[in-house]
Design a protein around this nucleic acid. Structure first.
Lengths: 136, 136, 136, 136
DNA sequence: GTGGTCTAGACCACC
DNA sequence: GTGGTCTAGACCACA
């Protein structure tokens, strides 16, 4: 338990989840930012490299990056790479809180539907923060 | 408390969430069962009624019901309606874990998208545990 | 000069402009809205139809529509079609004015660089409003 | 007013506009000439200096200058620098019209993207004509 | 029928 | 080398 190290961000796909691959990439980048694994200025894997890593087509990676760029989560610099962009400040606190409550309610319902408790959810979430990518 | 009452279960759709409508219906039925809003034997709205209520195509409702029937969450009785069936014991731990991971990834991404961190999520979840009966 | 009629919106591509095709489509939809040729609720050509009309690949049309959907200019309903969405209200008036001034300055500079005057620009713009699509 | 002065022409980049950087430089040189900010014989910043000023790669500046040189807008004199060259008469009307249409489409789309109409654009342009010397 | 996702692969633009 | 655009075509999801 020495000093905590910065662990390289790692993408993982679940090809059987029914969630589109490009969407999984988007979610994981957003999640990585939310969990602190990805910070402003960090470079993401290149389109081609991530495509190889995940055994998918580069177009699929490019699409995910592109959508994240459109909403200003990423910045791409042609010929250079793709980076986490400075996140802009969000508006209305009330609406945000309402949305957060909705997200929580949803996840509890979905987890409950397959027999997991709120504690199970919390445990999973804590895992994300402490060890964003266990394997190297 | 003698006679069984018609539970006023309410479906809500988010047409902008990217989650297919039929899937949202499935999730809400499952969630309703997990949360106790729906119990064994409760009757669901008819396909046509729910389609009207949600302003969607009856085929979409039918598909959701059909899929729930396939996994024995619902039972349809010709000429009578659609009901919550007795829940069987759940199977494979691997599939469940996969789904839990999906739920967690999803909620983290959604929270991240509106500027919340994993810690914010955990805090909200803990709030639910401390005051579980505030809602309803 | 009888009553003014609603003219069907028409896309036109300039394959030699160097501007990406999907971008031209995006610009024309946005322009159509700005000029009043396209209104909330109007259905756009189907992905496949527009692809045929413009002799381009359906993927290119889909990409343009997709990006416009992401910024909530369009709404797509699977199996139904693609429609002009209700435009949301914009924020800060000052910043907007600054941006408009920038757009005007830019266009004047670019037009001037090839020997056109402000009047030429105004004339072209007026043409857009009066006859959004001359040919039928 | 005797000796010719170094005009304090200033380049400005918008890295989020989607317009290639080299193209923005080209446009600004052309625009500067059209607006009178740059005159025949004026010296431009060196490739390296401009690259430093704009925090971009010298190759990008070099490319912009090279393309302007190819169309004889600029002249480079070895060991001296890069200068605005005497402008030749412009050619084909078709190409010019095409470019004007592009400029108009572009400005309408950009204005529409922030909620302005074609009328707003026209109004702004008219304002320029009425008070052409307010700026500078 | 509608739109959505993904692959394969070509070619371009930029650094 | 980087990312960007486009095509061709398969297959899926939804109404």
């Amino acid at each position: 338990m020495g000093s905590r190290q910065r662990v390289p961000f790692r993408f993982r796909l679940d090809l059987h989840s029914g969630v589109p691959v490009y969407r999984q990439i988007i979610d994981q980048v957003r999640g990585g930012i939310a969990s602190g694994s990805l910070s402003v200025g960090d470079q993401l894997p290149t389109v081609r490299q991530l495509a190889v890593d995940l055994s998918i087509n580069p177009n699929t990676v490019a699409r995910a990056y592109r959508e994240l760029e459109l909403v200003e989560v990423l910045e791409t610099h042609q010929g250079t790479g793709t980076f986490i962009s400075a996140q802009k400040i969000r508006g209305g606190g009330e609406e945000r809180s309402r949305q957060l409550a909705q997200i929580v309610t949803d996840s509890v319902a979905r987890a409950g539907a397959i027999g997991f408790t709120v504690e199970d959810l919390v445990e999973q979430l804590r895992g994300l923060v402490l060890e964003p990518s266990r394997r190297r």
